[in-house]
Amino acid sequence: MRRFALIAVPYAWLLALFLVPFLIVFKISLSDTAIAIPPYTPTLDISGGWAAIKGFLSELDFENFVWLTEDDLYWKAYLSSVRIALISTILTLLVGYPIAYAMARAAPEWRPTLLMLVILPFWTSFLIRVYAWMGILSNEGLLNAFLLWTGLISEPLTILNTNAAVYIGIVYTYLPFMILPIYSALEKMDDSLLEAAEDLGCSRMEAFWLVTIPLSKQGIIAGCFLVFIPVVGEFVIPSLLGGSGTLMIGKVLFEEFFNNRDWPVASAVAVILLLILIIPIILFQRNEQKAREAEG
C-alpha cells in the first residue's frame, strides 16, 4: 500500500502534467484554425456521447502538416535549426574539450575549485548570460571598440544580429554542459595507459588520439547530445543575438503562437520538432544507460 502511494503520486503528476499535455498538443495539431475561443475547431463535448466523439474524430486531419510541407518557411527553419545546432555543437566541443582536459590534468586539490568555476555560470540566469553579449557584440560594443583600438579593423564589424553572434551565444551558454561529462570521463582515466602507449612507441599526439579520445568517448557523446538537443529548439539566443536572417524553429513556434495566434499550426510545428528530436533523445538515453551499466 505504501509502495503504491510512493509510485502513484509522482506517476500521476507526470501523467497529468507531462504526458496528457503532449496528447493535447497532438490533438490540436490535427484541428483547424478558427476564430473562436479557444481558436481551433473541433472541440470535444463528451456529453454528446459516442456520436459526438465519432464526429469529433472525423473532423481531425493532417491538413496543418500538409500546410507545413508546402510553406517552405517551416522547412527552412527546421533545416537551419538543425544546421545551427550541429555547427554549434562542434564548436562547443572544440572549445570545451581542451578545458575539460586541462581540468582533469590539474592537481587533485585544485579540481573541486575548477569544477565549481565551471558550474557557477550555470547557476546564473541564462537570460542574463545571453544579454551580457548584447553589449559586447554591438557595433558600438566593447569588442569592436577593442578591435578598432588595436588597429586590426578600421570599421566596426557587424556581429550582433547575425548568425555569428548566435554561435557565440550558444557556445558560451552551453559550454558547461559539454565540459562536465567530458571532464568526468577524463578524470577516471588511468594515466599509466598513456605511459604504456608511449613506451610502445606512440608519440604524445598519437597516444592522445589512440588512448585519451576513445576513453573519453562516452563523455563526448553525452556532452554533444546535451548541447545539440536543446539548441535545436532554442528560443532566447536567436531572439536576442540573432538577426532577421536567423531562422530557428523555436522562435518560429513562439511567434506563430503569440503573434499569429495560430494554435493548430504552432502545435503541428511542435509535433514535428519532437519527431526530429526523438531519435537523438533515444540515443542519448541509451548512451546514459550504457554509462550507468559500465559504472554499476
Binding site: V25, P230, V232, F235, S267
Partner: peptide, 13 residues
C-alpha cells in the same frame, strides 16, 4: 532534454 517551447506550449494548451 525537451525543448522548452514544447513543454510550455503543451502545458498552456
Amino acid at each position: 532534454v525537451m525543448p522548452e517551447v514544447i513543454t510550455g506550449l503543451s502545458l498552456l494548451l
